[in-house]
Design a protein around this nucleic acid. Structure first.
Lengths: 323, 323
DNA sequence: ATGCCAGTTTGACTTTTGTCGAGAGCCGTG
DNA sequence: CACGGCTCTCGACAAAAGTCAAACTGGCAT
């Protein structure tokens, strides 16, 4: 009775404390343990998602700016992280908000597609634990061969872990050296099935990448700065789930894209809720491309980015009217 | 700036405290108010459901007894409130558990049918606040003419209030004096539409009533003790949403039932999740009737009731096998 | 204008909670 | 069977959160 505290005790403690509203010392005496232990159990309970503390993100959608953006961009929902108000770490603020929004969007039984990148990993990292049963988290794109800090499989697994969900990884490299090989690999049953199933996801979480020399795909070695330059000349505007898109949000017709193992943009668009999170202001152009491509139905951005988007939408609407 | 603290401030405080994990004094300095105010805001935030603290009820389904009951009674899920373990108020324990289970079953956009009675009202009373948007709570049966402590409309509205949901009341008496009048009233568009829509609910919450002289329906004056006695002779076994059912869980063929304005048992059975909560051990026979009638898919009971149910199920299974 | 009321805010106080290092029981291993 | 290694547990202290009466605010009726 002393050795394995197990979930059982944690559960009971959490129950008495949070549901019945007892104080820790009362819980302790009920369970015949010390109050210190109770405190520890409660922390574990919070960490494992046995108790869920979530704050409504309504505040951020109530924002006038967010409403305007929803209308202007025809999105289902927009959340805007305030920036000047009370200064905290500027970009984690967006990630914290994104994590809350994400948790609010997830339902039991959902299948969730997750891409990769610093943004996604940051979100995973600060996401609070939850106890979603029957949730599956699937990886949207192939892995990186080289060890890199925010690997696709890491993103997927970390989020699955936080949610107490099943993680479904994808054991293929993100990009191959020849189109032929990529084609062959995509035809492999294991891979093909998983790719085919992506359209059945209920929710997708991704960010968008830049096509600069310090882009994510460059830093991780999938493309050299030179190659990226060429692609940029050819019309590359952003990166989604490892694929290069042009300003219209279509997959760029290039060798690189044909060598990538990832969810097709068409299958991404089949996903009902596509949550896009953008932290850096430098991702303005890539974000426009993603929006143009209909790759996003739910958006989390910072206030300054929101204003730029709105200005842009207003300007292009005005231009359209003028012409 | 001093007069209307509004939701805005409460929201921000809750956000900083719960989502960002700041301490109260940090929140206070961020918001330029005193820590005491922050503490107050946070309480309000919890009370209004801006933050949600919920404990997983998994513990209670993991219980071996619960599993056995699920199998024996062919129910989707069973939760059993422990009784001897750590002694608290015995019957509120069941209600607290029921409230948690209920909140766990509700999803956004759901339509919820709520019956009435002491049990239901107790659950409503201790239910923590939540911020479910797009949820509608509908009343399953007519109102009581006489003022009584746990009126159907009270139950409905209180639950709607806690959930921040829309409450849909039912402005008709529970029982009329003549069958003709009841028939006419049921044909009224307002009433008819609401009754017809009950089958579209996603979730129902009710208990079952006894058919004793101190039954709920007797105490509230819908039936006299004498009439109840007659009905009992005629095979009455329990009360569901104001209607008398027999041991097989069918509506008893009697004048009273024909004079009642309430959701038909058939429409109740159309509801996907039918959560039944039983506090008193004396409701054993009525509960059996309700179970026989398929009026319950999710069940919350106390441990002793659970054991009785299991014994009964085992015995009747044995009898069936023997015969 | 004035005084009252309802609601908010605050500082000071008490209670409750989080945390740390030490100790105790259990386990596989040498 | 003695030994670390491991995790769980506890007591005591420090930190944080809850509470209360008093002061303050603006609105409102007199």
């Amino acid at each position: 009775m002393a050795i394995r505290p197990a979930e059982q005790l944690i559960h009971k403690a959490a129950w008495l404390y949070y549901a019945h509203g007892l104080r820790q010392d009362q819980v302790a005496s009920q369970l015949n343990i010390s109050r210190a232990s109770v405190a520890m159990y409660l922390r574990k309970a919070r960490e494992t998602g046995i108790v869920n503390i979530s704050t409504s993100t309504q505040l951020f959608t109530d924002d006038v700016l967010a409403r305007q953006l929803e209308d202007a961009l025809e999105l289902d929902a927009v959340w805007i992280a305030p920036e000047n108000d009370y200064v905290l770490d500027p970009s984690t603020d967006i990630a914290v908000l994104a994590a809350s929004v994400f948790l609010e969007l997830v339902k039991k039984g959902d299948r969730i597609g997750v891409a990769w990148g610093r943004t996604v990993y940051t979100i995973a990292d600060i996401m609070s634990y939850a106890d979603l049963q029957d949730v599956t988290v699937v990886q949207l794109c192939g892995n990186l061969g080289a060890p890199y800090s925010y690997r696709p499989d890491q993103c997927t697994m970390e989020i699955a872990r936080r949610l107490n969900a099943k993680g479904l990884n994808f054991y293929a490299p993100l990009v191959l050296t020849t189109e032929l090989l990529a084609h062959g690999l995509r035809a492999e049953p294991v891979i093909r099935e998983q790719l085919a199933d992506i359209g059945n996801c209920d929710l997708a979480l991704y960010s968008v990448g830049t096509v600069d020399a310090d882009s994510h795909v460059v830093k991780c070695g999938a493309l050299s700065p030179g190659e990226m330059g060429v692609l940029r000349e050819a019309g590359a505007a952003g990166v989604i789930a490892g694929q290069i898109i042009d300003a219209a949000g279509k997959a760029l017709d290039c060798s690189y894209n044909r060598r990538v193992i990832s969810a097709s943009l068409a299958s991404l668009r089949q996903i009902e809720k596509r949550l896009m999170v953008v932290q850096e202001d430098s991702k303005f152009q890539p974000l426009l491309a993603a929006l143009a491509g209909g790759l996003c139905t739910h958006l989390v951005v910072g206030a300054s980015m929101a204003r730029r988007l709105l200005d842009h939408a207003g300007a292009s609407a005005g231009a359209k009217k003028a012409s």
